[in-house]
Amino acid sequence: MPLFLDLHELPEGITAAHVAEMHQADLDTEHKYNCRGLTYWCDEKRKTAFCLIDAPNKQALIDLHEHAHGAIPTRIIEVNDTIVESFLGRIEDPEKSKNISLNIINDPAFRTIMVVKIKSKSLRSKDVETLKTAIRGYSYSIKAIVPQYQGRLVKQETNSFLMSFDTVSDAIHCGIKIQESYNGIITPDLEFKIGISAGIPVTDKEGIFEDTIKTSNYLSDIVKGNFSITSAIKDLYEGENQNISLETNNSILVINNNEEAFMTQLMDFTESIWSHTTTNVNDFEENLGYSKSKLYRTMMHLVGKSPNAFLRDYRLNKALDLLKKQEATISEIAYQTGFSSPAYFSKCFHKKYGVLPSNVKSY
């Protein structure tokens, strides 16, 4: 049976005790709708609650809520139990305290999401084995450090890590420790980047924490500097730590709300057009609503690259992924990634990675 996570926006005055009563009403009624309520999260501060329910379909979940207590969810997404537990820490109600009739769970589903990416700047044969060894060492360190800060490793790919933390402080301190482990070893051909943002699990997107993951990914992908966070993370950290400022830590870059909005707009547009050979900087100016000079200044300040260099590097990164899959020829990949000719593609690729595209398959 499918598993669903829903969002309830709580009216003023509704407390965790009220939500506990509604959860109990669900449990008392669920058999009538072939549903099974597993647990819930309640955040009095942000006025949100989330229910995790096995149900035949979304309509059965809605009918259950409507007839049990009348609180219809604002949004419902289908989820995987393993992923939910990785992000939120549990998939069933905590054990009820003795002599307590109602299991009140005042546990927010708001989480801090950290993405760490390790990227190789070189693909030259003399560097590859050294870099692979270094990446394995960093990966081992990261997996050992995360649990020390109550973090959960949600997903690991070859050189990428997605983590969830209950508090901003744990995420920041974990990120600093991970950064220190990288700074302790000189590996000039590796780029080591951390991005941290926070949010709720259910939004208008289909995936759990989709907006928050996207922001953390963008921070670790394109923002200059090795450790980037949103201004919301900075504010939350200072709120948790009696206004201790993060600005004294020069290794952490805080992007403001306007920069975050620009970053999202830039990446959303880039992801929609990067494969088109006719796309140029004029398209960025038009679609982002920036003049040529303002776009250049904003890109250099936030990304550290001109619009032309940013688009070229984005395409080359996509091309590298395709080359590693070995499912197309170099000429096909050149055109698929928006380059005007295979010769120009090979020239750009060699300049960035130190090898020709034809040599990537050997790695």
Rank of each mutant, 00 (worst) to 15 (best):
S101K: 06
G207Y: 11
D54F: 08
V79P: 01
E260G: 01
R36H: 14
V360I: 10
W274P: 01
V19T: 12
I113M: 05
Q156F: 03
L61E: 12
M163S: 04
F269T: 00
L162D: 00
K324L: 13
S275L: 09
V115D: 05
I273R: 02
L266C: 08
N34Q: 07
T329K: 15
I200H: 10
N280K: 11
T167Q: 07
K318F: 00
K58Y: 02
T74D: 11
E271C: 04
L10F: 09
V79M: 02
G239N: 15
H350F: 06
T29R: 13
D63H: 10
D43H: 05
F262C: 03
D93C: 08
L27K: 15
I255H: 01
T337E: 13
Y182K: 04
E9C: 07
Q148M: 07
V168N: 07
Q179H: 12
F4Y: 15
A68C: 10
A16C: 14
W274M: 11
V154R: 03
N308W: 08
D166W: 11
Y290V: 02
I142M: 09
K234C: 10
V355S: 08
E238A: 15
V84T: 11
I53N: 03
L320R: 13
I104M: 04
I100R: 13
S340F: 01
T215E: 03
K96Y: 00
R312H: 09
L316T: 05
E210L: 00
N243V: 04
T74Y: 08
T277V: 12
D63N: 14
F192V: 08
S251F: 00
S160R: 03
G137I: 00
I72D: 08
G289I: 06
S141I: 02
N80L: 11
Q59Y: 13
T167S: 15
E206N: 12
I185Q: 08
N80S: 11
A328N: 03
N103G: 03
I91V: 11
T167E: 02
T203I: 04
H8T: 09
V128A: 05
N282I: 00
K155A: 07
M300A: 03
N57G: 07
F87V: 02
N359S: 15
F269D: 06
E95H: 10
A20R: 06
D93H: 10
R312V: 08
N249R: 13
A144K: 10
